[in-house]
Each structure stands twice: as C-alpha cells, then as structure tokens.
C-alpha cells in the first residue's frame, strides 16, 4: 500500500475515465435528454471495439476503423429504436433484446472470445502504453480530451438546432411535442442512434487502449455510464448549468469514478468483489438526490419535531387527567 503506487496508477485511471466519459455522454443523451433508459449500451460497448479491432487487423486505417465502429453503434441504436417504436416494446426490454442480439453479432465480428490489437503493430490512437513517458501530443489523456471536446462541441451545436431542440422537447414533454407537430417516435430513434454511436466510438477507443477487444468488455457498461452521469450531476449541477458544461460534467464524472475505483483497488480489496462494490457505489450515488429530498428536511426539523411530540404528549396527558378528575 504505497502512495507512490497509487499516484503511478492515476494517469491510467484518468485516461480510462475520459474514454468511458464519451460512453457516459451517450448514456446522458438517452437517460437525461430523452428520458429513456437504454440498456443496448452493454452490447454496443463491445460492438464498437469489436468492429474497430477487426478493421485494424484487416489492414484498414485507424479513422476508417473508428468510423465503422461508430456506424455499427448507430445501427445498434436503430435496432433498439425499431423494437421500441415500431414494435411497441417498452424501452428497457427493447434495449435488453438488442444487447442480447448484439452478443451474437459481436462474436461473429471478433470470431472468438477476444482479439489483440497491440499498439506496436497497429496505428492506434490511444494505448495504456501512451500514458506516461511519451510526447505530450501523443499522450492518450491529451488525445481523448481533444476528442471529448470535439464531441461536446458537436453535440452542443446539434442540440441547439431546430431538430435538436425538438429532441429535447420530446424527452421533456412528449404530449406537448406532438401537439407542436414533432414526430416523437422518429426523434426517440434518432436519439438512440446518436447515443449508441457515441458508445461504440468510446468502445473503439477502449479496445485500442486495452490492446484487445473482448466479448465481455461491455458487460455492466450501463452501470458505469449511469454512475458517471449521476456523479457528474451530483457534484457539478450547482455550477454547470449550460448544456455543454453539463456534458463536460458527465465526462468528469467518469474520470472521478475511475479514480475512486483505483483508490478502492489500492486499498487491496479482493477484485472478485469489484462489481459488487461498483454496484454499491452507483446505488449510493443514485440514492443521493432522493435522500437529500426526503431525509434532509427531516433532519433539519428534528428539534421542532421533538417539541411537537412533547406538546402532543402534554395535551394527551392533560386530557387524561381531566377525564380522570371527571370520573372521580
């Protein structure tokens, strides 16, 4: 348990956090903007990496591979959208179905359980080897930070357009949206496509970062994505009100999540229990806004409550005494 060991691991945690931050921004779009809980991402978080790795191995350029990964994610979102909107399946179930179906697709893309894309053989953008002792512009933290800023700028622009505004309205009030002539069904599909495209893009980066794509790399992704969204919201909601800054806070949320995770591992906790711990951390962060609403007023009014109880006791005692006096 040396501090140096922890500090040594932190740059890696930041890079990982930033990569997952892009994924979390995708989750934010469905969960917060569209008000749809989309579980497709557990599948898409593997699809992107699988497609990117396979493309790289087949000798395609890095940007083609990343573009193909993004497109695969967009199609996965379209699949969920069709399940939900055309077939009338509730959003959560539609996402689970897509995720289930994507397992087969991912497996057929990779061809086996996992496939390596080592940074020394392929022109990868990021890698865990490029975190320390490399030129600043080659540093994975820098590269992902730039990509994040570009993505946020694009999304900020998009959600300010007439179409983007109608997407936000769809999530905020579907009845009103239809009354204002907005095709809410189509908009939900568009939102799911954008969201899953981002998740797949993040997945493509993640496979490069780890140096391999794995059939299980998306398992539980939604938990991490939600954690980032909620941590970002809980910590930064007071200061970040602008839409672009809200997206940035999601990215920060992911970074904080991975740093905390690193800290937990540094404490030497059995890694078998990692998922359990992650679930507990996320549950606590999810509970935070609710607790604040329900229990904070209760704690604040504790003294007043005690006085009221005392008062009521006295009133009842007085009545009892009065009744006893009457009887006597």
């Amino acid at each position: 348990m040396e501090l140096a060991q922890l500090l040594n691991a932190m740059p890696g945690a930041v890079a990982q956090g930033l990569i997952w931050g892009i994924m979390a921004i995708g989750v934010y779009i469905t969960f917060k903007v569209l008000d749809v809980a989309d579980l497709t991402v557990d599948g898409t978080m593997c699809t992107g990496g699988a497609v990117c790795a396979s493309m790289l191995i087949n000798g395609h350029g890095i940007w083609y591979s990343m573009g193909a990964a993004l497109l695969a994610g967009v199609l996965a979102g379209l699949m969920t959208g069709i399940f939900h909107v055309v077939m009338g399946i509730p959003a959560i179930l539609a996402g689970i179905l897509s995720q289930f179906a994507l397992y087969s697709i991912n497996l057929s893309v990779i061809g086996k359980a996992n496939v390596a894309v080592p940074s020394r053989l392929y022109p990868v953008l990021v890698s865990q080897k490029f975190v320390k002792n490399v030129a600043f512009t080659k540093n994975s933290i820098f590269v992902v930070a730039i990509l994040t800023v570009i993505i946020i700028a694009l999304l900020y622009w998009f959600f300010g357009t007439a179409l983007g505004c109608s997407l936000r309205a769809t999530g905020s009030n579907p009845n009103m949206s239809r009354a204002q002539g907005i095709n809410t069904k189509r908009n939900i599909v568009i939102g799911l496509m954008i969201s899953n495209g981002l998740v797949a893009f993040s997945s493509a980066l993640y496979s490069q970062y780890q140096g391999f794509a794995d059939i299980n790399m998306g398992r539980g992704a939604i938990v991490i994505g939600l954690a980032a969204v909620i941590i970002g919201n809980v910590i930064f909601s007071k200061i970040f009100r602008n839409f672009a800054l809200k997206l940035l806070s999601v990215s920060f949320g992911a970074v904080i999540y991975f740093m905390v995770l690193q800290l937990i591992m540094w404490f030497g906790i059995d890694t078998n229990f990692l998922k359990l711990l992650q679930a507990i951390v996320v549950a606590l962060f999810l509970a935070f806004p609710y607790w604040k609403k329900v229990y904070l007023p209760a704690i604040k009014s504790m003294k007043k409550r005690r006085l009221i109880r005392k008062h009521n006791r006295e009133v009842l005692a007085a009545r009892k005494a009065e009744a006893a006096a009457k009887e006597a």
């Binding site: 998009f158 357009t161 007439a162 179409l163 983007g164 505004c165 109608s166 309205a169 204002q180 002539g181």
Partner: peptide
C-alpha cells in the same frame, strides 16, 4: 418550438 409547428425541423438554428 411552437413557431416551427408544421415546418421541417432540420439543422438550422433552433
């Protein structure tokens, strides 16, 4: 949003 009722909503400013 209301001003664009019945119009095409594209990538022009919202």
């Amino acid at each position: 949003l209301a001003a664009r009722r019945g119009k095409f909503r594209g990538l022009s400013r919202g």
